[in-house]
Amino acid sequence: MNEAQIIDELRDKFGERIGTPERLRQHRIVVTVEKENLLDLAKFVKDTYDLNYAISVSGIDYPEQNKFVVVYHLCKMSEEGHLPLVLTLKVPVNRQTPRTPSLISIWQSVEWHERETWELFGIEFEGHPKLERLLLHEDWDEEFPNQFPLRKDFLLEDE
């Protein structure tokens, strides 16, 4: 499976519905997609390229552009091991109402990663069965109501 081929196919199939797929460097492809088209794209890449293995889910905060970006890193795992290709899905999310569909129905393995991102960024994953406290302590909400440690407006004491 060729990287250029994937880029072409994604562009043909989705056209305007996704941002231009971009080849960052060897084995790394980045696709930006709005949350409305996220599920379609995710289903497509999983069925077509058999990208069955979600490596990580991260959030990024861009306060100047008033958005979060949820980043999925996907990979193919077969009996013979990983495919070196990593497909990156970037989902911009509005900073005021941070909601995006959960991909747990497609990749079971994003469960804990999405839960962590929900906790540390406050991004709501619609359809996630269990968005509960994971890493922070239980009375975080009383101590820091509506604050999320990995957002840029949460400052450490020595900053």
């Binding site: 084995h27 795992m77 077969s78 009996e79 013979e80 091991g81 990983h82 070196p84």
Partner: peptide
């Protein structure tokens, strides 16, 4: 579990 997944070999 029978999957030969190791980054040292795969990438």
């Amino acid at each position: 579990s029978g999957v030969r997944g190791d980054i040292r070999k795969d990438a």
